[in-house]
Structure formats: C-alpha cells, structure tokens
C-alpha cells in the first residue's frame, strides 16, 4: 500500500545550503497553493490520498472524557497543524494514535493507509509507518543512542519483512543524517537522551524520524522549549522530510514554528474535538486573539 518514499538526504542538503531564503520561497509557494483551500471541509480539496483517518474517536483516561467524537483526516503530502488550549486533548490524541495503554478508547476508529490501528501494539503501529516525536523524549540510561537507533530501525524492517541493515550501511545513513541535524558523533555514543539538553533531545527525535522514514509523523510540541537556532535546525529537518508520500500532524501552541514549517491546514482543537479548520492564516489569528473563545464556549465550525 505504501509508496516508495524518496528520502531526502540530497533534498536536505539543498535546503540547508540555501538557508532562510529557501524557506521564504517555500512559504510563499505554500500560501498561494492554499488559496484554493476550502477551510470548512478539508476532505474536499486534498490532492493526496488519505494517510490518516480518525473517525468518531472518543477516549477517556481514568474515567475522564478527553477526546469526544473526534474526526480528523490527514492526506499524503499534507502538513496539518493542530492547535488548541492546554487540556484540549492534543497530546492525548498523539498518544492514542501511537497506542499508549493508559488511554481507554471508547468508540471510534483510526486508520493508517486504510488499515485499522487500534488493535495493534505500539511497535506494530510503528512498523506500519506511524511515528511520534515526543513532547518529552524519554531517557534510556545505559543504552547507547546508536545501539537504540539500530535496534529500532531493524526491528521495524524485520516486522515489515525487509532485510535488516548491516552495521556499515546503518552507520552511513545515521552519520549523514546526524550531520545535517548538528548531532555530534559523541552524542550518538552517549546513552539515548540521558543528560541531553532540551534542544538535543528534540533534534534526536527528528533524527529518528528521518532514519525511520515514517508514512505519517506526529510532532507533539516539538517546538516547545527551543531557542530560535534550535527551532530552525528542527524545522529544516522536518521540511527536508516533507514529501508527497508522507503526512504530518504538528501539534503546537504557537504560531512561531509554523513560520518555518508552513502548514497546509490548521485545525483548532477544544474540549476533545476539532472545532475549526482553516489555512495558515488561522494560526496567525489565534496568535492574536488567543484561545479564549474556544475555552469558554466550544464553537463548532
């Protein structure tokens, strides 16, 4: 079902060399591309096939309703931004999609490339191409980053019936990607995320995403806690992976990151459901007016 994804080491180089200018170009292209966008119904205009489909998803944690009959669709090639006030259920959605056990799915369905995910273990979902960049990447003491990366990559390949990478092939790939993300050799040898700074952890998430080449990637507040330089490195990494055969869901509180990773569509989430969808200008509007309207009275678009 999954198309072969040309992965962008070369693409990455181009972007990095051209720097900020290149981003501006891309942004203007994207903005103009979105003029045709029908904001109230994202299902109509998308060109790519649907990569992620969430239907009527209701989820509770410890008896408390977090997601309430949520619908969401992301298409191949699409970068969707998910914004919303604290406690609206954004992170829970990312965890439910990835398969965390704390969450009880009451009703609904989640399809990745048409296949149902909800009955799969997290590792099986990963092998099917789902990636989650964690808001708080977890420290794994004693396990060298390289060891972990290789275990993850080969575990996924094995589950998909692909040949595992040999150490030299693996090293070549990692080193090329790490260079672009300003991740040093020393960092790769250290235990995964143990003692890493906030910026280092986020870059490591992007490195893993680049290495694992997911069909659909969720970035859960990857921008939070980053200074402007780190944000740019992370955004470069994400942009390099934009591809007609890959969907993104970028969860964020701030419009700032969307200046660098320009979304095709912006969804606003409040009280466990999507309450409004629009073009990138919606993010700008939210930045000005805040989430007041959505917290007080959940408007339905």
């Amino acid at each position: 079902m999954r198309r072969a994804v040309p992965v962008g080491i070369g693409f990455l180089q181009k972007i990095t060399k051209n720097g900020a200018k290149n981003f501006r170009d891309r942004r203007s292209e994207n903005s103009s591309g979105q003029l045709a966008l029908n904001c109230s119904n994202p299902l109509i205009f998308g060109r790519g096939k649907i990569v992620l489909e969430v239907k009527n998803l209701s989820v509770s944690i410890g008896g408390r309703q977090i997601l309430d009959d949520l619908d969401l669709t992301v298409r191949d090639g699409e970068v969707a931004a998910l914004m919303g006030p604290n406690g609206s259920g954004k992170s829970t959605l990312s965890h439910v999609l990835a398969g965390r056990k704390d969450d009880t799915v009451e009703t609904g369905e989640v399809l990745l490339n048409g296949e149902s995910l909800l009955n799969l273990e997290p590792d099986a979902r990963a092998a099917k191409g789902l990636f989650l960049a964690f808001q708080y990447p977890v420290e794994i003491p004693g396990v060298a980053t390289l060891t972990f990366l290789k275990a993850a990559l080969n575990a996924q390949r094995k589950q998909r019936g692909q040949e595992e990478f040999s150490t030299p092939d693996f090293m070549k790939r990692v080193k090329a990607l790490a260079g672009k993300l300003k991740i040093s050799q020393d960092m790769l040898k250290r235990a995964l995320n143990a003692g890493f700074s906030g910026g280092e952890k986020k870059r490591m998430e992007i490195l893993q995403m680049a290495l694992l080449e997911p069909a659909f990637a969720i970035l859960d507040e990857t921008d939070s806690g980053l200074d402007i330089d780190a944000l740019r490195v992370v955004a470069d990494g994400v942009n390099a992976l934009r591809s007609p055969a890959r969907g993104f869901l970028i969860i964020t509180h701030y419009q700032r990151v969307l200046d660098y990773v320009v979304p095709d569509i912006v969804h606003v989430m409040a009280q466990g459901r999507i309450v409004r969808s629009g073009g990138k200008e919606l993010a700008v509007e939210l930045e000005k007016s805040g989430y007041r309207d959505y917290v007080a009275e959940p408007a339905v678009a």
Binding site: G99, K101, A126, L132, F134
Partner: peptide, 8 residues
C-alpha cells in the same frame, strides 16, 4: 512506550 513507538 517510547521504545515500542520506535518499533522495538
């Protein structure tokens, strides 16, 4: 959960 999200 983190490890499993990566496919392990």
């Amino acid at each position: 959960f983190y490890c499993m999200q990566r496919g392990i």
